[in-house]
Amino acid sequence: MARPTDPPPLIPGLPGLTRMPVLVTGGTGTIGSQVVTELLESEVPARVLTRLPRPGSPGEQVEGDLAAGFGLAGAVEGVQAVIHCATNPAQGQQVDVDGTRLLCDALARHNPEAQLIHVSIVGCWDNPLPYYRIKCESETVVTTSGRPHTIARATQVHEFVARLVGARLGGLALGVRDLRFASCDSRWLAKGLVDLALDEHVSPDPVEFAGPEVMSVRDLSALTAHVRGKRAPRMYHLPTIGGVLRGLADGSNLPGPGAIRGGRTYAEWLATEGNSGQ
Rank of each mutant, 00 (worst) to 15 (best):
A210C: 09
V44H: 11
T18N: 10
G175W: 00
G274R: 04
R153T: 01
A114N: 07
L40H: 00
R218L: 09
R246F: 07
L193T: 10
H149E: 09
H237R: 05
E137C: 07
G256W: 04
E213Y: 06
A190G: 02
R218V: 14
G251Y: 08
R177N: 08
E159T: 13
G242H: 00
G56S: 10
T30H: 03
T272P: 00
A152T: 04
V176A: 04
R180Q: 15
R187S: 13
L220D: 10
T18P: 04
D178G: 01
D126L: 09
P89N: 07
T5D: 13
Y236C: 12
A162T: 00
A152I: 02
P89T: 11
A2Q: 09
E113P: 00
P53I: 08
V202E: 10
V142K: 05
R101N: 06
R246P: 02
A86M: 04
A75Q: 10
P58V: 01
W125A: 14
R246T: 11
H84K: 13
P58N: 01
T224E: 08
D96L: 07
G229A: 06
T87Y: 12
Q93M: 10
L17I: 05
S276H: 14
C124R: 04
Q115G: 12
E41C: 11
A210S: 12
E41Q: 15
I31N: 01
W125N: 13
Q80C: 14
V141K: 12
T87F: 11
A190V: 06
R47W: 13
T25N: 03
G263I: 05
E77N: 04
L248G: 02
G171N: 13
R133S: 08
L238I: 12
R231F: 05
D65P: 08
D6Q: 11
A197G: 10
G27F: 12
T272N: 02
G262A: 08
T150R: 06
S145N: 07
L220H: 13
S33A: 15
D250N: 15
A81K: 01
A162C: 01
K135A: 07
R187G: 13
G166A: 07
A259F: 08
R47M: 10
G251F: 06
G211Q: 02
V227A: 00
T155M: 01
D98T: 15
A249V: 03
R153A: 00
D178W: 14
A232R: 09
V79S: 05
P239Y: 02
A68R: 14
R101I: 02
V161K: 00
R218S: 15
G274C: 06
A67E: 05
R3G: 03
D185E: 11
C136W: 01
T28N: 11
G274E: 05
G166K: 00
A114K: 10
R109A: 15
R19P: 00
